[in-house]
Simulated assay, not measured.
Amino acid sequence: MSTPILYNDFPTFLRKYFSYKVQKISLNAGFTCPNRDGTKGWGGCTYCNNQTFNPDYCRTEKSITTQLQEGKYFFAHKYPEMKYLAYFQAYTNTYAELEGLKRKYEEALKVDGVVGLVIGTRPDCMPEGLLHYLEELNKHAFLMVEYGIESTCDKTLQRINRGHTYAETVEAVERTAACGILTGGHIILGLPGETHETMVEQAGILSRLPLSTLKIHQLQLIRGTRMAHEYAEVPDDFHLFTEVDEYIDLVIDYIEHLRPDMVVERFVSQSPKELLIAPDWGLKNYEFVARLQKRMKERDAYQGKKYKDSEKRIIFADDKFTT
């Protein structure tokens, strides 16, 4: 009997679509969010400071083309033959009028070496007109839509000022995947009010959705955010994973309950040290992954080990796009 793989990793997933190495280049296309501009609220998510994931070349005063060219320069010295995915990452990248969105997406695809798009957005910002456009675009270029889910608990979503419900997540993910578009999700472990048990239960809930990929991040307290202020006022409301081994064991429990074929893209987020309050483990991403894999082997753990099939129908994006 063959030994199960520890988990489905993102580089292996990308090799299904590309015969060469590809790298995401983050973009800041100048968008905002409906919970920032007053449409649904003000101030954005309580944990959010977009400085934590925008590289230096990622500035709104620069065009999409310029950001991509500078991003290419940043990566190309290591892998000269590399190709790129334009990653619309900062804020809500479907929150604008359709023609403007088309111009930005298509500008990115015209840059030499860019072979596809990854579009980060919210579940409540995918209108039908845009989805139909993306369905057509997906026939000619690699495309993934990544939804910020963050939690399956509406009480948590309300507390962190997301401005949408989990029901909206379900609807958006199902609509997108039904169009044949690769659909990813992003969740945060350690949000206030959530316990080890409820977080592990979340893995089974998300497994019912037609998600191709999932990013898992630890909660980080970032300077200047509303959540940092809340922590300073009532620290007992938070359980920060100050010990990395505790978080590793939570992640293992989580992915043991995750659908076996879902791709786990990430386990941690790394914010700039000058912005990070906690937890600060002093580990690079590859160092964290090495410790996680070692611990999984010690526990004889693997993705889906404790997953229970649901009767809910799962619809997946077609594996039609290859290069």
Rank of each mutant, 00 (worst) to 15 (best):
M1C: 06
T3S: 11
I5Y: 06
L6M: 12
L6V: 11
Y7G: 02
R15P: 02
K16F: 07
F18H: 06
K21L: 07
Q23A: 12
K24N: 12
L27P: 03
N28L: 10
G38T: 10
C45K: 02
C45Y: 01
Y47W: 05
N50F: 05
Q51L: 10
F53Y: 15
S63L: 09
S63I: 06
I64V: 15
T66L: 13
L68V: 12
G71I: 07
F74R: 01
F75P: 01
K78D: 13
K78R: 15
Y84E: 03
Y84R: 02
Q89E: 09
A90W: 00
Y91G: 00
T92Y: 04
T94P: 04
T94Y: 01
A96S: 08
L98Q: 13
K102Q: 14
R103M: 10
K104Q: 15
L109K: 13
V111S: 09
V115D: 10
G116C: 09
R122P: 04
E128H: 10
E128L: 12
G129R: 06
G129D: 14
Y133Q: 04
Y133H: 10
E136V: 10
E136I: 08
E136L: 11
N138I: 03
N138E: 01
N138V: 02
N138L: 02
A141R: 14
E146P: 02
Y147C: 08
E150S: 11
T152V: 14
C153P: 00
K155T: 13
Q158F: 08
R159M: 09
I160W: 00
I160P: 00
R162V: 05
G163Q: 10
Y166V: 03
E168P: 05
E171W: 02
A178K: 10
G180R: 03
L182I: 13
T183N: 11
G184W: 03
H186E: 10
I188T: 04
I188F: 08
L189P: 00
G190C: 05
T195N: 09
E197Q: 15
E197V: 12
A203G: 09
G204L: 08
I205D: 01
S207Q: 08
R208G: 14
L211D: 00
L211R: 00
K215R: 11
L219S: 02
Q220P: 01
Q220W: 01
L221V: 06
R223Y: 09
G224D: 07
T225D: 08
R226K: 15
A228W: 06
E233V: 15
P235M: 02
D236A: 15
D237A: 11
T242E: 15
E246G: 02
D253H: 04
D253S: 14
I255T: 02
E256I: 05
E265A: 11
F267T: 07
P272S: 09
L276N: 05
D280R: 09
W281A: 07
W281E: 07
K284G: 02
E287N: 07
R291F: 01
L292F: 09
L292K: 03
L292Q: 06
Q293E: 15
R295S: 11
K297I: 14
K297C: 09
R299N: 11
Q303M: 10
Q303H: 08
Q303C: 08
G304V: 04
G304C: 05
K306C: 06
Y307R: 07
K308L: 12
A317C: 05
D319T: 03
K320F: 12
T322E: 13
